[in-house]
Structures are given as C-alpha cells and as structure tokens.
Amino acid sequence: MSAPAGPSGGSDLPPESGTVSPARADWPLWEVFVRGRRGLSHSHAGSLHAPDARVALGNARDLFTRRMEGVSIWVVPSAAITASSPDEKDPFFDPAADKAYRHPSFYEIPEGVTNL
C-alpha cells in the first residue's frame, strides 16, 4: 500500500509535518477537579490542555484517574476562574488572623455529649 510509513517504519513524522497548523499549541488550559468518592467534594487535581470540554474530560480521565482516584470529574476552562491575586493577600486574608471569636471555640460542651 502506498501509505506513509508509521513510527516503526522509519518516518515518525506525519507525511506533511511541515503543514501542521500551530493550533494545537493554542489548545486552552483546563482545570481538573476530581471527587475521590461519594460524600467528598471535588478537589483540584491539576490542569491540562484540550481543544474542547469533552476532550478535556477524556484527558482528565486518562491523566488523573488511572489509579482509581475518582468517581466524578469536573473540567473548567482555566480562563473562567477568577482568582485572588497575591498582591491582595494582606487586605484579603490578614484581617482574619486576630479574630479568634470567629472560631467556634467559646462554647462549653455539655457533659455526656459524644460525637461532637
């Protein structure tokens, strides 16, 4: 057959590798959230590149759940996440440091109450 040689045939590159579009370098980034098991919440597992959401989900399955890590996967475009900036760290987080009354540590636990 006149087909191009495959990877073991000596020519590893697609027959017209010079014409491959650079688009794949532009695949958007996706954040992957995996739920370990029922009852737990999804937690961030990592990120990956994919051309669309469905492929991202498949890639996430192949990259992050190979060892039975999950029962559910979410993928979210990284661009859709609005994140706090390190520059805002002080006004965002520091004021909480000296407000111990926000912790539920001032309640007396009645005697005899277990599992609290």
Binding site: P7, R24, W27, H49, N59, D62, L63, R66
Partner: peptide
C-alpha cells in the same frame, strides 16, 4: 510522538 502529551497518555492507556 503523539500530537499532545494528553493524547499520548490516552493512547498509552
């Protein structure tokens, strides 16, 4: 040699 690292993992799996 796959088009993307993610696809390489998929094919390897």
């Amino acid at each position: 040699r796959a088009p993307a690292l993610e696809e390489e993992m998929a094919l390897a799996n």
